[in-house]
Design a protein around this nucleic acid. Structure first.
Lengths: 200, 200
DNA sequence: CAAATAATGACTGACTGTCGGTCAATTAAA
DNA sequence: TTTAATTGACCGACAGTCAGTCATTATTTG
């Protein structure tokens, strides 16, 4: 009857158009007008697709995280040892490749703490479950291969959240955390404890 | 020649007067006028003592954390085993007693991510160092007593940040994290690995 | 010593500019 | 003609400022 736009697609397009802006600036330092102008739309149109600025961040994190997960899946397939697989898992927190997503994720976490909306909680919960199962699978395989001790399974949740904690702490402090080094160090030490040693 | 008030003291007084308001509401849902009214001062006066709302949260977290640390120190003195000491350490994240501080700390972390100011980073860095050394001392004593393996020392940073990560994740998700249970479970499993067993 | 006056920090809320969000008007496809 | 899409002018709310007031103390003067 009239122009029918793919709402979901246009939402993605708008979000992507603002990506650089968001990556390089904090969301609440930006105005809706600025964002709309960047996306080449009117202010009112922005509200046609997003309820507020927070939702824009949400959309972008959503998009980039899917992309990131695909890459991660590929990379994981090329790694053999359980220890290394876990390390690949944590690369999100320091790799240059994930820098943009990380910047947005930081904002997203802050928003989730300050003004949690149901969809965001649901998304984070789904992410948690998704990654948890991923790690679980890696660990299960490691146990099945006899590479690591069965007790490793009990450590998954703590290991997983350690990454998040290290990440947040590194952002909120200065000079006390070297993400890449500290995370890998921790993983190594944990694996020294749970890997089965032939001799010893 | 005029009234001289103890600026620092009054700042504390104002912050404390707003404590309940802040604990039960998110900082950016509150207006300065509302806050000023609660503290029984004019809006202009608020700005005489605080640069913005964020600083109010900062002041409160500062105050309550000092209080919390004293209590924690006492409690730690009454516990013997290294494992239990570490658990006392994590009580912040779930104890009823620390609920108010936790609510404010949540806001503070979010602010630190969204609009980090130098003083906040400095404060968080100092906190990190302070707690890290505290845990380090506990672990060192445990090692000296022969209770746990020397390798435990390498796990401190990861253990410490796990708490923070678990906390943030519990706030951002629903139904996947039981803070008290999951933290203690993790601590137990780690200690099963690093505690020296007589028989075995 | 006391009264008057000066000096100044503390305090205030009216005011201003900005921004988030709405909506009436407009465009354009079907 | 109908309906979806788009828009920016408009509005109310709020953060932050500032010119003016007040309370207290210092100083001068009788």
């Amino acid at each position: 009857m009239a122009i029918i736009v793919d709402k979901a697609q246009k939402k993605r397009d708008i979000a992507l158009a603002c990506k650089d802006l968001l990556v390089h600036s904090s969301i609440n330092a930006l105005t809706i007008s600025e964002i709309a102008k960047t996306a080449g739309i009117g202010k009112g149109t922005f509200y046609e697709y997003f309820k507020d600025k927070d939702e824009l961040v949400f959309e972008l994190v959503n998009l980039l995280m899917q992309e990131h997960n695909s890459k991660k899946e590929q990379k994981l397939a090329s790694v053999e040892r359980t220890r290394e697989k876990i390390k690949v898992f944590y690369e999100f927190f320091y790799s240059e490749e994930a820098a943009d997503l990380r910047a947005l994720y930081k904002e997203f976490v802050a928003i989730s703490l300050l003004a949690p909306k149901q969809e965001m909680i649901a998304f984070q919960t789904e992410c948690f479950r998704f990654y948890y199962q991923w790690v679980e699978k890696i660990i299960d395989e490691g146990i099945a291969k006899g590479e690591i001790l069965p007790v490793s399974k009990e450590l998954i949740k703590g290991m997983y959240t350690m990454g998040e904690g290290m990440f947040i702490a590194s952002l909120a402090t200065e000079g006390v955390i070297d993400l890449k080094h500290d995370i890998n160090r921790y993983v190594d030490e944990i694996f020294e404890l749970v890997e089965k040693k032939e001799s010893r």
